[in-house]
Amino acid sequence: MTPISTIDISLWREAGQSAAAVAQDVDESLQRAGFLLVRGHGVPRDLVADVRAAARNFFALPEEVKAQYAAIVGGRGWIAPGLEADGYSEGTETPPDLKESFAVGPQTRTGDPVVDDVWFKPNVWPTEVVELRDLLTAYTEAMRRLSDELLALFSVALGLRSNFFEELADRPTWTCKINHYPPMSSVGEPEPGQFRIGPHTDFGTVTVLDREPGEGGLQVYTDDGGWEDAPYDPDALTVNIGDLLEYWSGKRWSSGRHRVLPPQAGAPEEDLVSLIYFYELNHDAQVTPLDPPIGTVAGLGPVTTADFIKTRIEAITM
């Protein structure tokens, strides 16, 4: 048994009783764990495979080549090992996460350099792996469509008559990160308390994850079950909500707490690549939490997306 429900979003598209059942499953699963498995999403599996293959080609480049595309945490490009420690976001001091990443984001610049230099930085693309640009652009377009659809579904799951997210996500901020978790034979034995990604919650509204299963893989925390291996379905995407949507729901739903285990001695050559799409809202969107009876906490004040997200990104930067 798992607290994480599997839904078929194609049934929700059909409307009627099937859609109502999907919305109820969503509400219950997000209250329990903040996570879902989503089937029927329509994201082409060959596109995912091609993105992952191109990413592996990039991560296999010499470090001095990747350094030409280096970025800080929250930036665009290669985020080298040792720069992030996600456990810090919940106040836990941990060694750096055992991963490297490649990140891209939206290019819908506002014309305000103060805003654009934070939320709409130019993407950088490795000339050594030219196919990555077109592949990842197609992938993020598919993720944007799916994330918008998920937010519409979530509005129904909250019992709202219309998609109350829609007008606040016409120029959204998002980040797509490709995380590479090298094998133990490459990074060495983990330090005490070190993870591939330390325990944390995500920051935005929706996170969509395409992952590879492994011994050093994803775990999800619930109050009832503690830490458990996340269920894996090769035909499903793993979806969790972040702190912003938890807050917006009036704490009805839980931002899914999770971690990625360090490489395991029993699988020293395990080498994993995950594709993660972190969706937010417009940078200047004002979020007013839902009061009871939808929410469970009354009197939560409004927040602006940019302020809410920025403080959390700064917390995980080493």
Rank of each mutant, 00 (worst) to 15 (best):
L237N: 00
G266T: 15
A152S: 14
K66W: 03
G204C: 12
S5N: 13
L136H: 09
N179L: 13
P268D: 12
G188P: 05
T304V: 15
A285M: 08
D97E: 02
V206M: 08
M318G: 07
S274I: 12
P113D: 00
M318H: 13
G301C: 11
G42H: 02
H283R: 03
W119F: 15
D202I: 04
G40Q: 09
F102T: 02
G159K: 13
A315R: 12
I79N: 08
Q286F: 07
L237T: 05
V22T: 11
P3L: 07
Q68D: 15
L261T: 02
A80E: 04
P183W: 01
S162R: 14
T296R: 13
P96L: 05
I7T: 05
L168D: 12
E64S: 04
V124E: 07
E212L: 11
H41W: 05
G216L: 09
I7S: 00
S29V: 03
L272C: 10
A20N: 15
F58L: 10
W253R: 05
I9Y: 00
I276Q: 02
A315W: 09
F165K: 04
K99A: 06
V115R: 12
Q68F: 07
L151D: 07
A49N: 06
G256Q: 00
R109W: 05
K121I: 10
D27L: 05
E166Y: 08
P231S: 13
H258E: 05
P122L: 07
S10W: 01
W174Y: 15
R13P: 03
I9H: 01
C176Q: 13
H41T: 02
P289D: 06
A265I: 15
P263K: 12
A67L: 07
I9R: 00
A67D: 08
E149N: 03
A103E: 10
A298N: 12
G216F: 09
R211G: 14
S255F: 06
Y279R: 01
R56Q: 08
T173E: 13
A33C: 14
G75L: 08
A306F: 09
V239P: 00
D233H: 14
D97F: 07
D86S: 14
M318C: 12
S89Q: 10
K66D: 05
V115K: 09
D148N: 12
S29C: 06
G214Q: 09
V220Y: 04
F203V: 04
D291M: 11
V297A: 06
F164I: 14
D235S: 14
M143H: 00
S18Q: 13
K66M: 04
P213C: 12
A152R: 13
G299Q: 09
L47E: 01
S249K: 03
A152Q: 14
G225W: 10
D170A: 14
G105F: 00
S255M: 07
P192C: 10
A15N: 15
M184V: 01
G74D: 06
G111R: 03
V65L: 04
S10R: 03
Y279E: 02
F59V: 03
L150S: 00
I7E: 03
D224V: 12
T175L: 10
F154R: 12
L272N: 08
P199C: 04
L135E: 05
V73G: 15
L160Y: 14
E64N: 06
T311A: 13
F203T: 07
E269L: 13
S185D: 10
E246W: 11
W125C: 07
D112G: 01
L244G: 11
L83I: 09
